[in-house]
Design a protein around this nucleic acid. Structure first.
Lengths: 200, 200
DNA sequence: CCACATCTGTAGTGAACACTACATATTTGG
DNA sequence: CCAAATATGTAGTGTTCACTACAGATGTGG
């Protein structure tokens, strides 16, 4: 098997840069010129490595969810449903206002509505958000089984609620909300989960 | 004063059609060709009437917020902070899944992230969302003064919370969540406001 | 050192975009 | 009926977009 000339850039480092461009400008707003410049490569290298613009987005999303996957494990490891919600939402308040990243969440900023030819981008993002929601739901199912949540609680609805608040906070962060403002939202939001807890 | 040839289309009806295109595809995803076709006019008529694409968006946003303004009045007319939140969020669950409109909310679908040259579109949308939030905050300030909310409650934080949930629900609606799912989210969300109520 | 495979940089490609020049049509004021 | 003013439809304009042809560079296997 012949090997040919080796690639001169690091694919993961390049992906990190692409991720940031999509994060800041959205899928449609990000241009190949911006992406290649941020990645430090030329268009042919991008297309040889990732197929096309949408392939690059998917690779960036994979990397994003992989990085966040470890954190989500910490979140669902909290002792109670209430603590899961608090750890999740407070963590999001911090992450979405971390100056090391663009504000908000890539799974929202990436593209909520797209034009003709990119219709599946919003679906792709929604599918990744749904993964987080499923993880939360499973955790809340367990919490209900453990008697941590009321017997009348709906774990799926609770997970969807926490997911909705997360998304809403992401949009606010991207439009300038600061960390303190998001933490206040998280603080109020947790009280709804608390109201579903079996023990006061 | 010379009058010239009168316009052959109704500006408000044309705006309604443009609004729907922006709502479905976002600002960047909507093309002038799609807009003119939906509006039933040709590009020169569009530019003569609205200036440019961004001017058309602003006009559509004005119309959208005007239409929703009446409904917001009903929302804040509810008797208690809790009822305000419930009326708001349940109404949003219904509106965002109304088959007469595209799913979700124009103030979110319009554009959360945009590319170079459209940077102020997200700001424009955020400003309109902030108007609703201010309206809610004023209502919650009153609720606190009336003793309806606890003396420890933060009306601004509560308003920001309800606004965040609304936005999150909008994103969910646009990615396929049905009315029942959104109502469940609203139901949970209201409990946080209930927890801030003075009387159980 | 050679044949081949893969990568890289330059320099484009056609298509789609927002926007407009211009000729024509339809109104009002005199 | 004429002149000025505004609207309309046709048919473009230049620009930017995602994407690629191609030639040269750099590696591996024999």
């Amino acid at each position: 098997m012949r090997m040919g000339r080796p690639r001169e850039f690091d694919a993961e480092m390049a992906l990190d840069q692409a991720m940031e461009v999509f994060w800041r400008h959205g899928y449609e707003g990000a241009t190949i010129a911006q992406l290649t410049e941020a990645m430090g490569i030329n268009p042919p290298s991008l297309y040889a490595c990732f197929g096309n613009k949408e392939g690059l987005l998917k690779a960036a999303l994979d990397r994003y969810t992989k990085l966040r996957g470890a954190w989500m494990e910490e979140v669902v490891a909290a002792a109670t449903a209430r603590d899961v919600a608090e750890r999740m939402l407070m963590g999001i308040a911090d992450k979405q206002t971390d100056p090391a990243n663009p504000p908000g969440c890539l799974l929202v900023q990436g593209g909520i509505a797209c034009g003709t030819g990119s219709e599946n981008v919003p679906f792709e993002l929604a599918a990744r958000r749904a993964q987080n929601e499923d993880q939360l739901r499973d955790r809340f199912v367990r919490a209900k089984a453990e008697g941590d949540l009321k017997s009348t609680s709906d774990p799926a609805a609770l997970a969807r609620y926490v997911s909705a608040v997360s998304v809403g906070m992401g949009v606010m962060a991207s439009s300038g909300a600061d960390r303190e403002a998001l933490r206040q939202v998280a603080d109020v939001a947790v009280q709804a989960v608390e109201a579903q807890s079996a023990r006061k």
